[in-house]
Design a protein around this nucleic acid. Sequence first.
DNA 1: TGTACATCAGTGAACGCGCGTTCACTGATGTAC
DNA 2: TGTACATCAGTGAACGCGCGTTCACTGATGTAC
Lengths: 237, 237
Amino acid sequence: VSAPRTARDRVRDEVTKEILAVAGAHLAQEGAAGLSLRSIARDLGMVPSALYRYFNGRDALLSALILEAYTSLADQAEAAADGAAEAPGASDGARWMAVPSTMRQWALARPHEWGLIFGSPVPGYRAPEETVVPYTRLAAALVRPVGEASRTGRLRVESSDAGSPDAAMEEALTPVREALLPDAPTGTLERAMSAWCTLIGIISLEIFGHWRNTVLDPELFFGHTVTRLGDGLGLRR
Amino acid sequence: VSAPRTARDRVRDEVTKEILAVAGAHLAQEGAAGLSLRSIARDLGMVPSALYRYFNGRDALLSALILEAYTSLADQAEAAADGAAEAPGASDGARWMAVPSTMRQWALARPHEWGLIFGSPVPGYRAPEETVVPYTRLAAALVRPVGEASRTGRLRVESSDAGSPDAAMEEALTPVREALLPDAPTGTLERAMSAWCTLIGIISLEIFGHWRNTVLDPELFFGHTVTRLGDGLGLRR
DNA sequence: TGTACATCAGTGAACGCGCGTTCACTGATGTAC
DNA sequence: TGTACATCAGTGAACGCGCGTTCACTGATGTAC
């Protein structure tokens, strides 16, 4: 049942989007700490108090922006995973590359938003609970080629993994197992989580400026490293 | 030539330390954005302008704190590496664990400082150049067991690494090669850098709160993952 | 179709806040002779 | 050993700033009859 949309409603939606756009631009330039209602209002030619018609104060606006960042990243990751899944001749290893590359590009284009998600938390501020949903979508998109290869038996399994699975580790990763890789061997699950850490680490280190005078060709290094992660997971090139 | 230390000099050093201590406490509680000269002065029972006798404004103080954080982390890592090197019966794999564990403990004890080093950069603020020195010390301490095992021929080398080394990657990692692992094979160098990313990623994800409802036993997962990294590097357990 | 009323976006002024930084000053500590 | 001067830590007042949020208001848009 779509509510009857009056002109007022339509304008309201548009202005809401404008506010988010301007706020996003400020965020991109100055980070979360520099986000101020007054400067946003100034840019929009409004008076600061007018923003309260749209967002219940600064924190609510920041929450909306954070949620938007998560959603945008998850959307792009899913689109990349979909594209890779539909590519006709692609190997599992090639499919595996799609989501990490997209994540890196997204982070390069929106470094502050990456920082908002994976950087130091904004002090005195709690991220909204709803971020769990896009967060899971992102992880699921990343791991999809692994699960698929595992289900169809295309996954190389290390001989060391064939032995007794570690019960304690299996339990420690229960939520991940259930949400992401219900059928994969324990070793694969562990490696996938470890790959997640490597991926977040490698992108964060680049985005936050740690490659200066260290890694001279970040893209090359990224490609190599992620390919190796795929190998380690047992995906065929 | 040690300068003659008058009473004034001694008091000056003490007050400087007190300022840094209080500022560090504020940093730990509220993060870099919440660091204010006025509140520090309040805690010390001084007037804000008095701090200018010791630090040339807020940014200088922040720089000092950042440098202190780097130095503290590097010190602990080196101490851990030294301890591991002197342990009599320890395997290379066991020695490899020492520095990562110490880094994690340090980060758990001082999450905001970890964020200062590896989290999103403080906007509008450039970290002092001198951080390169402790940063290198940290990386060197981490990698020491690898270099040692390589030099003494105790390193397992993957058959896939024995072939043609990738010249482009070798070049992309030149600074790392020279500073940290002058003698190791290219594959080892790559894996070491990748391990660095995993390590920073795994600690950051835990510290920044991403393990909630995901990794139920962070310590266990950390231990497993780092051990696996050591295996991958060819260290003997 | 026209009128009376309700809703609500946006205004403008004001509130109280904490901040970094400057400056002229006081008085204790250190130094030179 | 004693005196004159220089150094410098810390004071206290003041500056100008941008901030989030509140509140009573105006006037346009929408709704009910």
